[in-house]
C-alpha cells in the first residue's frame, strides 16, 4: 500500500435507501482501497449493492455514512460545482447503455467534456479526432450515434471518457449490451488504455471475460465486500467458477 498511491479510498461506507416506509440497506459497511493504475472489477449478483458502490466511487451519489476519497479528497465535502468539476476532469464514465448523446455526432460527443473543461473548440476537435482514432473510429467521427453499431457506440463512449485525461475510468457493465466478440474488443481496449495511459479502470460487471484482464477483483455480496482477489490468486478461483457452471 505504501509504494503505490491510492486513487480511491472507501472507508466504512453504508448506504440506506428509503423505499416508502421500508429502509433498504444497499451497503452495510464497505472498506476498499484502489491503487492508481489498477484495473479493477467489482463483481457481484444484481442487488448486491454493486451499482450503489459504483455510484459512490463515481461521485454520483453520496454515502449515508462513511467516507469516499477520490485522489484523497473526501467527496462528501465537495459542493455541486466541485463535484461537477470532478466528474468532468477526474473521472470518465462508460455505461452499459452507452449513453451517447443522440443529437450529436461522435466527434461532438467526445469534444463536449473538453468544451465543459474550458478547452477551445479547435483544440478540442483535434484531440477528439485523435481519441476516436485511438479507439479505432478514425473514419467515422461525423456519424450520428444511430448510424453506429453498439460496439462502435461504446468505442465513442470510451473515447469520450478519455477526453479530459481522467485519472479514473468508471465502467458500469460496459459489455452488458454487447455480443461476446464486441465485448471482448471493448475489454481489450480498456485494458490497453489502462496500461498505456496508466488510467485506473474500475468496472462493475458480471461478465467473467473481465476477470482475465483484471488486476484485482472485488466480490460484493449483500452490501459488503465478500473477498478481494489479486491477479495471481485469480486463476484458481476462475477454475472454481468453471466447475460451478
Amino acid at each position: 500500500m505504501a509504494e503505490s498511491r491510492n486513487i480511491v479510498r472507501v472507508s466504512g461506507v453504508t448506504k440506506t435507501f428509503q423505499l416508502g416506509k421500508v429502509e433498504v440497506k444497499a451497503l452495510t459497511g464497505v472498506d476498499l482501497e484502489i491503487a492508481a493504475g489498477c484495473y479493477l472489477s467489482i463483481m457481484g449478483p444484481s442487488g448486491s449493492g454493486k451499482s450503489t458502490l459504483f455510484n459512490m466511487i463515481g461521485g454520483l451519489d453520496k454515502p449515508t455514512s462513511g467516507r469516499v476519497f477520490i485522489d484523497e479528497v473526501d467527496i462528501a465535502q465537495l459542493d455541486a460545482y466541485e463535484l461537477a468539476w470532478l466528474r468532468c476532469r477526474k473521472i470518465g464514465y462508460i455505461f452499459q447503455t452507452f449513453n451517447i448523446i443522440q443529437v450529436m455526432t461522435a466527434l461532438e460527443n467526445v469534444t463536449l467534456p473538453m468544451i465543459f473543461g474550458g478547452m477551445n473548440n479547435d483544440e478540442a476537435i483535434e484531440k477528439g479526432i485523435q481519441l476516436l482514432e485511438l479507439v479505432g473510429l478514425g473514419d467515422r467521427y461525423l456519424h450520428k450515434p444511430n448510424e453506429l453499431s453498439g460496439g462502435q457506440q461504446q468505442r465513442v463512449a470510451v473515447a469520450r471518457a478519455l477526453a479530459n485525461d481522467p485519472a479514473i475510468i468508471l465502467a458500469d457493465e460496459p459489455t452488458g449490451n454487447l455480443d461476446l466478440k464486441t465485448g471482448e474488443e471493448i475489454i481489450a481496449l480498456l485494458k490497453q488504455l489502462s496500461r498505456e495511459r496508466n488510467v485506473t479502470v474500475i468496472s462493475a460487471t458480471h461478465d467473467f471475460k473481465m476477470l482475465n484482464v483484471s488486476d484485482q477483483v472485488v466480490w460484493i455480496r449483500d452490501g459488503r465486500v465478500d473477498k478481494i482477489e489479486n491477479r495471481d490468486e485469480l486463476s484458481i478461483s476462475l477454475g472454481d467458477i468453471g466447475t460451478k457452471e
Binding site: G58, L60, A84, W85, C88, T97, N99, V103
Partner: peptide, 16 residues
C-alpha cells in the same frame, strides 16, 4: 432525462 444525466456525468452544471 438520459441526455441530461449524461451531460451531468460529463461535468455539466445545473445552469448549463
Amino acid at each position: 432525462f438520459r441526455e441530461i444525466g449524461t451531460m451531468k456525468c460529463l461535468g455539466a452544471l445545473d445552469r448549463f
